[in-house]
Simulated scan of single mutants.
Amino acid sequence: MEEKIIAHMTAEALYDFTLYHTYSKFAGFLTNVLGLAVGFMGIILVVTGKSPAVSLVFYLLASAAFLCFTPVQLKLRAKKQVQLNPEFKGETEYTFDEEGITSLHDGKELSYSWGQMKKVVATPKTIGFYYEADRALIIPKMDFKDRFVPIMKLAVEHTVPGCVKVR
């Protein structure tokens, strides 16, 4: 069985995927914890009288900076990547079969066996086929159209059990 789709990367889809990629790791989690901790620390210091009330503004600004910097940076980076990275310009044809995934972009064909796949993940707007720890084929969900179920069936059947984390 062979399934083909044509994918068009968008800044919104790439941003969605990079958010997942960043915050699914421990460092992303720690950044959020640190941001919240700074805010709560400021509140506690002001309430207990160990810091003047005006300092709460600085604690809350620092907290907001920790919590907002990464998402804003990722959004700007995704927009820039879609504009500048040849890998994301134009369309890419993906062919899924029993052997794996073949991508054809700008006349360049690359093949990835199902055995190479470390994991297959879903975000709200994308599906990522990780062929290395930090490298993935990123395909917007909307481009799967009516081929989503057959392609995911191929992935589940031909990858290591537990590799596919798609809900």
Score class of each variant (00 low, 15 high):
Thr123Lys: 00
Lys89His: 07
Ala78Ile: 12
Phe66Arg: 05
Asn85Glu: 04
Ile101Arg: 08
Glu93Ser: 02
Tyr112Phe: 11
Glu109Asp: 06
Ser113Thr: 15
Asp106Lys: 06
Val120Tyr: 04
Cys68Lys: 08
Val57His: 05
Phe58Val: 00
Val121Trp: 01
Leu76Glu: 03
Lys89Arg: 15
Val120Cys: 01
Tyr59Gly: 05
Phe88Leu: 08
Ala78Met: 05
Val72Lys: 05
Leu60Ile: 12
Phe69Gly: 01
Val82Thr: 04
Val120Lys: 08
Ser63Gln: 03
Thr102Tyr: 07
Thr102Cys: 06
Glu93Thr: 10
Lys75Cys: 04
Ala78Cys: 01
Gly90Leu: 08
Tyr94Pro: 05
Gln83Ser: 10
Glu99Lys: 14
His105Val: 03
Phe88Gln: 02
Thr123Tyr: 00
Cys68Thr: 14
Glu109Trp: 10
Met117Ile: 11
Lys119Gly: 11
Gln83Tyr: 11
Val72Met: 08
Thr70Leu: 04
Lys80Thr: 01
Val72Ser: 03
Val120Trp: 04
Ile127Glu: 05
Thr95His: 02
Leu84Ala: 06
Phe96Tyr: 12
Leu61Val: 13
Leu67Met: 12
Leu60Lys: 05
Cys68Met: 15
Asp97Ser: 10
Val82Ala: 00
Val54Leu: 11
Gly90Phe: 14
Gln116Lys: 11
Ser111Tyr: 12
Tyr94Glu: 03
Gln73Pro: 00
Ala62Trp: 15
Glu98Lys: 02
Lys108Tyr: 15
Glu98Met: 04
Arg77Thr: 09
Phe66Thr: 11
Thr126Met: 15
Phe66Pro: 05
Phe69Thr: 11
Thr126His: 06
Val120Phe: 01
Ile101Asp: 10
Asp106Thr: 02
Gln116Ser: 09
Val121Pro: 09
